[in-house]
Design a binder for these strands. Sequence first.
DNA 1: ATAATAAGCGGAGACCTCTCCGTTTGTCAA
DNA 2: TTGACAAACGGAGAGGTCTCCGCTTATTAT
Lengths: 204, 204
Amino acid sequence: MSDYRLTPPRNERRDAAENRQRIIDAALHLFDLHGVEQVSMNQIATEAQIGPGTLYRRYRNKSELCQDLIKDSVDMLFDDIYEAMEAHKEEPAGGRLRRLLGFFLRFREKKAQLLKGIENASPPTGKRAYSPIYQELHQQLVLLFEEIHGTKPGGVNSVFKADMLLHALGSEAYLFQRQGRGLSPETILEQLCLTFIPDEAAKL
Amino acid sequence: MSDYRLTPPRNERRDAAENRQRIIDAALHLFDLHGVEQVSMNQIATEAQIGPGTLYRRYRNKSELCQDLIKDSVDMLFDDIYEAMEAHKEEPAGGRLRRLLGFFLRFREKKAQLLKGIENASPPTGKRAYSPIYQELHQQLVLLFEEIHGTKPGGVNSVFKADMLLHALGSEAYLFQRQGRGLSPETILEQLCLTFIPDEAAKL
DNA sequence: ATAATAAGCGGAGACCTCTCCGTTTGTCAA
DNA sequence: TTGACAAACGGAGAGGTCTCCGCTTATTAT
């Protein structure tokens, strides 16, 4: 499961490259017009003037397509994050974690639709591996939690805690807080910190 | 959204009642045979010898059907939980929370497939209200968290924290820990407690 | 230039969820 | 008993995801 080889093979046939561009253009256009959620793979294929088979050959599902569309923004996000982590490396881990979350939540607000599109995998999704974005985020979270909690055997497992926090950052949980509970991004950030960063580590 | 009026109207027409039973029998049979995930609404309708329209008239989707199938077990679960909460009412809230989670995780292991069926709502699911089980669980969690944290304005919001924990108990998050991370139910329980119960409140 | 070949194409079709609506059928009151 | 009538039925069909497979085409070696 999950090749996630989203880098198009170096030597792409000319017609294939052209179709890839058509797909991307069509998707961006329709997403912009009707919203990611409302647009089906069929519609994209039609708009791109290719057969459904061709579309599915390149992107196994809508999730992969969304991933491709958001890739560059994700790279920029992590550039920002790494830069901020470096710039505040003297700060306690709790503070840096808060910064990281701040960056991500801002990103999540801007890219809400595509992120949701990425996470809506259709039923045959079994063990649900993380998509690259969440993988990379997970890595950083683990690092920070290890700094906060150490690696003592009896304590919280940093990987576990990172998993929990990551779930809280996913579309389903986040949008429920935003829409169902009516919380602002700032409130959510605050509550996430209170929930996942121990009191002692939250001090500036 | 979400009537969740799962109680069949008191005066049910005879043919309707009969069909309801056929549906339930068919579903139980097919679920047992092939697994919840693998069985489609169509197959259930066919097995029950009714039209698709009739099936969908009673259950708006597979999730509702699963809810109906699990209803009695859920009632028993909460009987157990309330009894245990009552029996240990002198114990600190952290301990009672641990007990509650223990009950739920045991239940979740036994009913894994139906629970997953309940949560797999198809795309047109917007604000994703909790199903009754999770609503009731949420209530209890809020109560316990309020006991643990108080209701001071600057602190963690108990509703928020209950939401986070509830997400961690959902199929997606839980099954990922079980299968993706290979954790045992016991380990998960332990980690959940370490993650969501502050150190001071975890003392016996 | 040409032939061989693998990659890419695209549509038919399997199967799904869910809706609409004309027809049938219990139920209840007269 | 018999209508009246709302409730329930069931199937056609819209629209979705995704696969399969015979045909086309770009590429690359000769």
